[in-house]
Computed example of a mutant assay.
Amino acid sequence: MKGWTLTFALAAVFALCVGPFYWLAMAATHANADIFSWPPRFYPGDHLGENLATLDESIGLANVLQNTLFVATVQTAAAIVVSLLAGYAFAKFQFVGRNAFFVLLLSTLVIPGGVTIIPIFELMNEIGLIDSYPALILPNLSVPFGIFLMRQSLLALPDELLDAARIDGSGELRVLWRVVIPVMRPVLAALAVFLFLGAWNDFLWPLIALRTPEMYTLPVALATLQGLAKTDFGQVMVGTAISSLPMMILFLVLQRQFISGLLAGATKG
Rank of each mutant, 00 (worst) to 15 (best):
I167R: 02
A221D: 03
I181C: 04
V183T: 12
L197H: 07
D163M: 12
F196D: 03
G171H: 14
I208Y: 05
M215Q: 11
L222C: 08
V175P: 02
P182A: 15
P213L: 11
L162F: 06
I181N: 05
P182M: 14
G169V: 07
A189S: 13
L176K: 00
F203H: 09
L176M: 09
V175S: 13
P219M: 09
A192V: 00
V180Y: 14
P186L: 10
W177T: 00
L188V: 09
A165H: 10
D163Y: 08
R166F: 05
G169D: 02
F196M: 00
R166E: 14
L197G: 07
E172S: 07
P186D: 10
W200G: 02
Y216K: 07
R211I: 06
L218Y: 07
R178V: 10
L210S: 09
G171D: 14
P213A: 10
L197K: 06
P219T: 12
G169E: 06
L191G: 01
P219F: 07
A199M: 02
V175L: 09
V175F: 05
M215P: 01
T217L: 04
V187T: 15
G169A: 06
A190R: 03
L222G: 04
V180D: 14
L188S: 01
A221E: 02
S170K: 12
L222P: 03
W205Y: 12
L218K: 00
G169M: 08
A190M: 12
T224W: 06
A189H: 01
L173F: 15
T212V: 08
V180C: 11
